[in-house]
């Protein structure tokens, strides 16, 4: 683990929608090249944390640095996979078109995608096992296929850091395996992957790094060191007994 190389550094981050803080004074340093799960109960601020890092939500206080610089200056290094349910899948467009959207950021304003972008999108579709679906209207895709399309859109961005908001929500076992294999490949290629995750059982199998979150940061570090009953209980409030059963 190249712990000296910090990909994402968060200091004193506090976010509130109304009066109560959703995130309180978060300090977090995510090393480069980890596959990290963010776990915590509903309303713990997991999605909010990702959205604050990505500058979608303005924090009340605190700073976020991507490789030492603000997100605004490092967009090209970052790709985002939102929750599947955050968009209307009846939108009139095709699978290929959605994946092509991943190229829009590097194109910038006004310039249209061309052959090069199409080729990149097709390659990404192939990586997620969706080649052959490119002309399919997106409402005709199953939930798992829609998730793969979203993943492909992020892959097209060819980023160094990937943020994913519950990529395993509502997908079947086959798709979950396919997605986690791609994430592990990303890590192998030296990328940093941050995933909001709900299934505690699979944390030790899928991830090498974990952050426990419940408005405050409870703990962060390597799964083998900190994924234990103590931290789970601190995060979820009830006596947990799922920890690594070896």
């Amino acid at each position: 683990m190249k712990e000296n190389n910090i990909a994402i550094k968060i200091d004193d981050l506090t976010v509130a929608y109304n009066y109560k803080p959703v995130l309180w004074d978060i300090d977090l340093a995510i090393p480069e090249g980890v596959l990290m799960a963010i776990v915590g109960p509903n309303g713990a601020g997991k999605s909010t944390l990702i959205k604050s890092i990505l500058d979608i939500i303005k924090p009340i206080a605190g700073s976020v640095k991507i490789y030492g610089k603000p997100y605004r200056k490092q967009r090209h290094l970052v790709a985002y996979v939102p929750q599947k349910g955050s968009v209307d899948w009846d939108f009139p467009t095709t699978a290929l078109d959605v994946v092509m959207m991943g190229t829009y950021g590097s194109l910038g304003w006004i310039k249209r995608p061309g052959l090069k972008e199409k080729k990149a999108a097709l390659e990404a579709l192939e990586k997620v096992g969706m080649l052959g679906f490119q002309t399919r209207q997106i409402s005709q895709l199953s939930g798992g296929q829609q998730q793969r399309i979203f993943l492909a859109r992020a892959l097209v961005q060819n980023a160094s850091i990937y943020f994913m908001d519950e990529p395993f929500q509502g997908v079947d076992a086959t798709t979950e395996k396919a997605i986690i294999n791609i994430l592990k490949e990303l890590r192998k290629a030296g990328k940093t992957v941050v995933v909001v995750h709900h299934d505690l059982q699979t944390v030790p199998e899928y991830f090498d790094w974990v952050t426990f979150l419940n408005v405050k940061k409870i703990a962060t570090g390597p799964v083998k060191d900190i994924f234990n009953d103590n931290n789970l209980t601190k995060t979820y409030g009830i006596n947990y007994k799922v920890s690594i059963q070896q």
């Binding site: 990505l54 970052v78 939102p82 955050s86 950021g105 194109l107 304003w109 006004i110 995608p113």
Partner: peptide, 18 residues
Amino acid sequence: KELKLLLFDSDYTKTLGF
């Protein structure tokens, strides 16, 4: 291109820098 992106996924549009 930008308007289509906005219609489909406005949060994502924001992360891309538009």
